[in-house]
Simulated scan of single mutants.
Amino acid sequence: MSKTILVVDDSASVRQMIAKTLQHAGYTVATAVDGQDALDVSAGKTFHGVITDQNMPRLSGIEFCRAFRARPENQNVPVVFLSTESEGAIKEKAKAAGAIGWMVKPFDQEKLLSVMRRLVTA
């Protein structure tokens, strides 16, 4: 059974690039255009991992992560940020919201896959 990853980014090209990278590696991918859309898309569904941007309209990545983690069914789903941000303070806020990793854009496809393979186990 394929593992399902939720990709959240307000940039269509970034969403598409991440999705294609994951799909070629055998993952099933759902996408969302911002944090609010991600909450809507994830309601009642099972995801094995989430990759989210930080700076997005409606709900930022941190706001999304807090709300996503507030749902009991998402307590153990790994959330990784993929953002242009790299400041320590914002990373700490993401960690406090429930993120377990942070990668900086532009991303290396092999590194992204390596991270996801480690976090989203069979």
Rank of each mutant, 00 (worst) to 15 (best):
H48C: 05
G49W: 01
I51C: 08
I51T: 10
T52L: 02
T52H: 03
D53T: 08
N55E: 14
M56E: 00
P57T: 02
P57M: 01
R58V: 15
R58F: 09
L59F: 14
L59N: 12
G61T: 11
G61L: 06
E63S: 08
E63Q: 15
E63K: 05
F64W: 11
R66C: 06
R66E: 14
A67C: 11
R69C: 14
R71F: 00
P72W: 01
P72A: 07
P72Q: 03
E73Q: 15
N74Q: 05
N74V: 10
V77I: 13
P78L: 01
P78H: 01
V79C: 10
V80Y: 01
V80N: 04
V80G: 06
F81M: 14
F81P: 04
L82T: 00
L82E: 01
T84F: 10
E85F: 03
S86C: 10
E87A: 14
G88V: 12
G88E: 14
A89I: 04
A89L: 11
I90D: 03
K91C: 11
E92G: 05
A94G: 15
A94N: 07
K95R: 13
A97H: 06
A97Y: 08
A97Q: 06
G98P: 07
G98T: 04
A99V: 02
I100D: 01
G101M: 04
G101V: 08
W102N: 05
W102S: 06
M103H: 00
M103L: 15
K105H: 12
K105R: 14
F107Y: 15
F107C: 13
F107N: 12
D108Y: 08
Q109D: 11
K111N: 10
K111P: 00
K111C: 00
K111Q: 12
